[in-house]
Design a protein around this nucleic acid. Structure first.
Lengths: 233, 233
DNA sequence: ATTGAAGAATTGTTGAACAACTTTTAGGGT
DNA sequence: ACCCTAAAAGTTGTTCAACAATTCTTCAAT
């Protein structure tokens, strides 16, 4: 029966009903689900029942399906015809693919920093400082968030909203796989100094060196994640 | 009245009904509409009425809205709350944005050609030859298609399906603006030799020179399109 | 011309219904 | 026990009809 298969997170969603009332119901539903997925409360592989979720969130199946469609296109959910939607499970090849994307986009954006639009460079530094401040407060989830902002700001140097958009989807998807790291604190903490280093090179006008540093950075992060995935996978 | 406002393309769509019957109705509807948009039969700014289109294609409003959602996310349509969906109209800043994306992604992919996956290089050459063959037959629309394949193949050198995906959306969106060119034949024809040149450099292992050539190529194409847009805009 | 309000038309969302498909369950045969 | 098949149950795919919310149109008054 549908109702007995409800696990804890389905009931939790009922609390989010208050946050759903304004314009574009489907978009807000997608927002709520996106938070649940990226924060790791909805684990990869979980099936999202239309009936259960619709009841929990207080929206109709049609509206819920529109929200699913949005998140499927962001690659946070996968849709199997006549089988339902599931929280995406990233395989090793997906991790390689993600870093392939990031190597191309982020390193190339760094190299073009000289033509960056006004304010873009400052956003990079702001993200670095945001991370350092969060680390001083030992707020490790926020360190992770600041790290995302850092990489998003790097892409922003290219000055293309379409590129920003694609990168934000990739970075959101990336969070699906961070949860496999046993020690997220150590994982994120190690990159604080690296971010600062790249930022300093950038403000020194040494874009090529910054790009090279970022490339090593991405190689190392990919290696660690692949190792963690193959260990338990 | 809804029915009297139907223009020619709405009735044409009725012929496409035969192509709509299999799995995932919404996806096939989206495919039909995508063709209409990228081929220029549906001009930018056109409003897509849910009632008219649903009747013309023989699908319900809900299914049609799912198709709209798909194409909106591909940026071929824009969705204005409570106002409907429209074929996207590209402004000058959109063209700059598109080329900003392409400069980062395509040039960077070219530079990494040495690490390209097996077969990726051959696909670049195949696209060049496809264009040359189409030109010999004076099949100009197909020259345009082959040109898209060429750029898609360049992105494929990076070996990331996510990058391929983002690029295919950008290239599809690009077709929205090609229709403003008064002489599409001359526009596409000029780039045949350029494509061949870049391809030869690539197979010579001179990736850096190829990337530089492509960058000039993109600069010039952007300049021409911006000029065409500001002329009549 | 401009403004404002009534009316028409369109989109946003819901709920129910049925078809299509998948998964589960239950039996039979070996 | 094991494997295969068929019925049953459950879920998704799609349509339809209705109403609420919002925008667009019309038109009179100033």
């Amino acid at each position: 029966m549908a109702h007995t298969s409800s696990t804890h997170w389905v009931r939790e969603l009922t609390l989010e009903r208050t946050a759903i009332s304004g314009s574009s119901t489907a978009a807000r539903v997608a927002g709520v689900l996106r938070n649940y997925v990226t924060e790791g409360r909805l684990l990869p592989g979980t099936r999202l029942s239309e009936e259960d979720l619709g009841e929990a969130l207080g929206v109709s199946r049609n509206t819920l399906r529109e929200a699913f469609r949005l998140l499927t296109h962001e690659r946070l959910l996968v849709h199997r015809f006549h089988r339902g939607v599931f929280v995406r499970t990233l395989a090793v090849e997906d991790v390689r693919d993600l870093y392939g994307f990031r190597r191309v986009v982020e390193c190339s954006s760094l190299r073009r920093a000289a033509q960056a639009p006004a304010g873009a460079l400052d956003r990079v530094r702001a993200a670095v400082e945001e991370g350092e401040a969060a680390a001083r407060r030992s707020a490790w989830p926020e360190v992770g968030t600041a790290n995302m902002h850092f990489h998003q700001a790097i892409v922003g140097l290219a000055g293309s909203v379409r590129l920003d958009d694609a990168a934000s989807h990739v970075l959101a998807e990336q969070r699906l796989v961070f949860h496999v790291m046993a020690a997220p604190r150590a994982f994120h903490e190690a990159y604080l100094a690296e971010n600062r280093h790249i930022c300093d090179l950038l403000f020194d006008g040494r874009a090529e060196e910054a790009a090279a540093a970022l490339e090593r950075y991405l190689d190392e992060a990919e290696r660690q994640l692949v190792e963690a995935l193959t260990a338990d996978g």
